[in-house]
Design a protein around this nucleic acid. Structure first.
Lengths: 336, 336
DNA sequence: ATGAAAGCGCTAACAG
DNA sequence: CTGTTAGCGCTTTCAT
């Protein structure tokens, strides 16, 4: 930070007025004469005066900044969430500080602390895959910072939440496979400590049950990234002759699985139907274009921000916490 | 921002000491007795005291925060750049505020101003496609804030820069097509006001020249996004019978072009070879996997941050500005 | 070894 | 209509 920045005091000295007069003139305080206002404003414009946001925040006891803790920026879903948040935030005069945890618990703790230190007015969180302890988030709430969870929520903290109906989405996706003719359906799942991993698996199991298909534990494999698919390639290929459908916990896992199976000589959807979860741009790039279930990132971000703003603007009120559930929509393409 | 945060003054009052003593005890000032230090530290720990970053910054005249202005977070290339920046930044105790311009000039101006207002210690910029005027960035420099450009640089501002050798990369990509047997090569290009658009086009032209191929203006089409490809679909299909190669300014444009051509019955690479620029994860997902030229995002971010830290830590010194050039590497896959 | 006071840049209650 | 003063939370001379 340089010393070049011109301050209110500087202007006061130069114009021979007091800092308070300058301050008031700049914000059209009724007490100030028109002449003075004009003079001050013209001068401020000329020297390109900008108030120091730090000083303002310290004074006002509010930063007009909200913090966002997000696992990974690269994923299209999370990028969409960010857009949904930012569009609303900027409209309301808020800045957004983005912290990506990189799915790393330690990083999440440090980032949360940093947001608290910077006195953000509120926090939006989607927890990392490796987060099992939530004290860092509780600490933010203890410090009086409103918090809203989205997507990857935490059950043991009571606050506003926005989620997609993962159970319903998984049920829809799995049922779609069955309706196309699959009966022996593999599920590539996320860790069960993540609510989304659990709910999606439950939706899968429920769909099987509803269609009188006996679930088989061996057909649930923990595998939720492209890299992991390549690691379990042999297992997958060994399983392939016995299955006719795969439901994966996300799109990139589905796409990698298609690639592995195609390389091993399987036709998709001819031999095996594949469906993902999320509907990022990868789904349409994949070959064949991937059937999936749409997860509305932008809307989720928008809704989470709306809830947060409500909390910030109504600190007194102790409304009950709400959980908003967004319903995913089936996007059938060529892979089923 | 709530009032729940405990302050140094609060602790002083409770412990019956002065704020200055608390401050010194906390940072192991030699003047303070061991007993007092222990007492203060234990208490601070117990009440979970955290210094107010705003007050600290105001006092110190440095925020330990750097600002990042980036066109769009969702692109893999830019996400990698962010990782490269953050990894170095956090190691050095800096926070990073990310502002995405969404390729929108107005947004870029506002974001830059906001970073200045927040007194960031330095700024890293990749300019938006719609930015033609650079006064907002000059204003940051005038305010004494060090700045480093990366990827999308601005010629008319003198400062440190990190770029990939776009000319060389385009030359390599185009030559690769020729070596595989293409002679009639289409180029889908980015706006020429972007240096990268210009350099990549020049590299393309130079490669043609070096291989004694007469360039044809009609074979250069301004088209640099997936969406645009679908808009010019008819034009592309009309051109298709006359060409045997395409070099695009980025990967997603290349992938979309392959999809349009395949739908129209063309074989890739049989009828037309296609090569992109960038090497994001899309390249391996595409069908066929896309040949491209690798753009090292992580290294670029790392290098830009390194240069910026150097400027921040050597404010006095007026070293000459450097431009670091990274050389892209050919990644041949199945599309050529 | 500890405290009082000033100041980073700004605003607002209080005076005139 | 304008100025003085105090204070947001912290550090750092300068006293004692």
């Amino acid at each position: 930070m340089a010393s070049q920045h011109i301050t209110l005091k500087d202007m006061a000295r130069i114009l021979g007025l007091s800092p308070s007069t300058i301050s008031r003139a700049l914000k059209d305080h009724p007490d100030i004469s028109n002449d003075t206002k004009k003079l001050v404003k013209a001068f401020a414009e000329k020297v390109n005066y900008r108030p120091n946001a730090l000083a303002l925040s310290l004074r006002r006891q509010r930063t007009n900044t909200i913090g966002l803790i997000i696992p990974e920026i690269v994923h299209h879903f999370f990028s969409s969430v960010i857009s949904g948040i930012e569009d609303l935030a900027y409209g309301e005069g808020y800045n957004v500080i983005i912290s990506q945890s990189n799915e790393n618990y330690q990083r999440e703790v440090v980032d949360t602390q940093s947001l608290i230190d910077h006195r953000v007015d509120g926090i939006l969180v989607s927890v990392s895959k490796t987060t099992l302890n939530f004290d860092h988030l509780k600490s933010a709430i203890d410090n009086g910072i409103p918090m809203v969870f989205f997507d990857r929520v935490c059950d043991e903290i009571e606050t506003d939440k926005v989620i997609v109906d993962d159970f319903d989405g998984a049920y829809t996706a799995t049922s779609h496979l069955v309706e196309r003719g699959s009966r022996r359906i593999l599920h590539l799942s996320a860790p069960q400590n993540l609510l989304i991993g659990k709910k999606r698996q439950e939706g899968y199991l429920h769909a099987l049950k509803m269609h009188n298909i006996q679930p088989d534990e061996k057909w649930i494999i923990k595998c939720d990234t492209r890299e992991n698919v390549f690691k379990i390639r042999d297992k997958l290929i060994a399983l392939a002759p016995h299955i006719d459908g795969i439901f994966t916990v996300n799109d990139s896992t589905a796409i990698a699985a298609m690639q592995v199976l195609q390389e091993a000589g399987y036709q998709i959807p001819g031999d095996i139907r594949v469906i993902g979860f999320g509907d990022g741009p990868n789904a349409s790039i994949a070959y064949p274009p991937l059937s999936t279930v749409e997860q509305k990132g932008y809307e989720m971000g928008h809704e989470a921000m709306r809830l947060l703003l409500h909390r910030i603007n109504n600190r007194g009120l102790e409304d009950e916490f709400v959980t908003k559930v967004l319903t995913p929509v089936l996007k059938p393409r060529k892979s089923t």
